[in-house]
Nucleic acid binder design. Sequence first.
DNA 1: AAATCGGGGGC
DNA 2: GCCCCAGATTT
Length: 319
Amino acid sequence: MPPRPAPAETRADTAGSAGATDAPPDVAALHRTLLDWYGATARDLPWRAPSATPWGVLVSEIMLQQTPVVRVEGPWRAWLERWPTPADLAAAPTAEVLRAWGRLGYPRRALRLQQCAAAIVDRHDGVVPADESALLALPGIGSYTAAAVAAFAHGRRAVVLDTNVRRVLGRLTRGEALPRPHLTRGENAAAAALLPTDAATSARWNVAVMELGALVCTARAPRCEECPVRASCAWLAAGRPADEHADRRRTQAWNGTDRQVRGRVMAALRAADGALTREELVVAAGCGDEQALRCLASLVDDGLIGPVGEQDGSYALGG
DNA sequence: AAATCGGGGGC
DNA sequence: GCCCCAGATTT
């Protein structure tokens, strides 16, 4: 199934044609190899279907921030069926938006997505902008998402650098096992230099590199023997050296954290389709009173929950 | 630059 | 049990 974006693979980068890319022959060959692989291997994800709207693409990108593809598909379909346009989401009750977000995690994304929808209605007449800087100015949209929406929803030429692309390019061109915790200017320049000149081809290149990172050039157990560009890979050529900055990575603790407690409170409120008393929420929090109350306060502060009634004794989803 | 912010699945 | 996942925002 030919995934979006890319009506037809642009062949302008084949030798001799006037055109789409002035890349040296080896880079042009790399482009063609990976683009062909993508055409043959890409997953049939719903937000890549020709019928997907720019709004659908934007929603997918927000949902996919730190959440794996397999967990997003279901919620994404339900979301777009319920709120097919930015105006629909902007008009929805925030409690319903948070409930529909379900267990995708980081529920502030749901809040910001609704704010984003409202901003699109206000500033752009309800139309998802194509300009990267206009996208960047919207709530919940950072550098990655702005580039991704410009490229995948509108076919613009943009440097899309997510964790997959950073890992693939780091291995391919610099021979590094894993990217650093923070994006560097060098990575941005390297990615920009490799980006095909033609807009439609560049958009397809971006998603192809991402797909390679998701399916083959994975963080854990890369399947180099299946990699279409293994012959050009600096990391493989160097014998797949281990990550140089492994000692700097430390995974955040989970048990007993405010994040866990906040998650339990949100889960309880999603399940209850109304308000719950403070006492019920403290029980749901599953921790000491002090931490439970602190978390309730922070959730109120974030606009994820709000007091109900005059007594301030119970809370519901939404501000 | 560092901290915070969910939740689940693979290994 | 550890690590990672189509990151963004705030301090």
